[in-house]
Design a protein around this nucleic acid. Structure first.
Lengths: 126, 126
DNA sequence: ACTAAATTTAGAATTATTCTAAAAAAGGAG
DNA sequence: CTCCTTTTTTAGAATAATTCTAAATTTAGT
């Protein structure tokens, strides 16, 4: 079994901050100072492929990793800020509308945070 | 007004294939052979920021651009293949569960296509 | 302890995208 | 139309994230 896998999964699950590979790398180095970046990528990919962590692809920022437990996300269109949401589970409702078996779903609600609203107002006022 | 904006929006909207910036670039070059890549990126970003096209961030492939009309996506976890779905509109249901005004939502249903299922069976059989 | 398979390492390579500064094009105002 | 300002385009360099490669190390099984 991989030397780092367990620890990396723990890091991802313990954090509620949707860490990037780089942030996971930094956290892992606190414990294993010699580990290299590629190892972190290898492990994150393996954990993702085998369904033990989630990967979030976002516009304008590197991929982020998240615990698997079902929950949704609120994303600011302006700055990309990402918050957790716990909306009602749609699995049954969605599965009822497609033929193939649903493995999971990924739901992002898009809004504009206050700061980004202000920025946009400024721009429009010009 | 931008020289290329209108044409680029047309290309994105006409295609039902979720084009990458590179593919848009190739299509645009058919008409304007001298245009450069950065122009395509500039225009796609502007169209996206002003809400005239959608951007889809995907694991393992470059960003893709899509018409704005509300619809959802079915994504194969194995190969990333992307299909359109027309599921019931969840806007009201979702807006009812959050405080901030919802601009839009992005819903991906994850499954494994047949080919990828076969591949996975093989692997597991080893 | 021996062998085969999986993982890690170091660093190069690749890919997608953004940045920079100068040139060209577009949009007024008179 | 002409002058001036703003926006867009160009060319190419630069950056950022991620993957690849081949050798070394670790792990697991017999």
């Amino acid at each position: 079994m991989s030397k780092y896998e367990k620890k990396i999964q723990e890091i991802v699950e313990a954090s509620r901050s949707h860490m990037t590979a780089e942030q996971v790398f930094d956290a892992l180095r606190q414990v294993y100072p010699k580990v290299v970046r590629a190892t972190v990528y290898n492990n994150l990919n393996r954990l993702w492929e085998t369904g033990r962590i989630r990967k979030l692809s976002m516009e304008g920022s590197p991929d982020r990793y998240d615990r698997i437990a079902r929950h949704d996300h609120l994303v600011c269109k302006g700055c990309g800020k990402l918050l957790d949401l716990d909306l009602t589970d749609l699995t049954a409702q969605l599965q009822g509308q497609i033929e193939v078996p649903l493995l999971a779903y990924d739901l992002k609600l898009i809004y504009l945070c206050e700061e980004c609203q202000k920025k946009q107002n400024k721009k429009e006022g010009e």
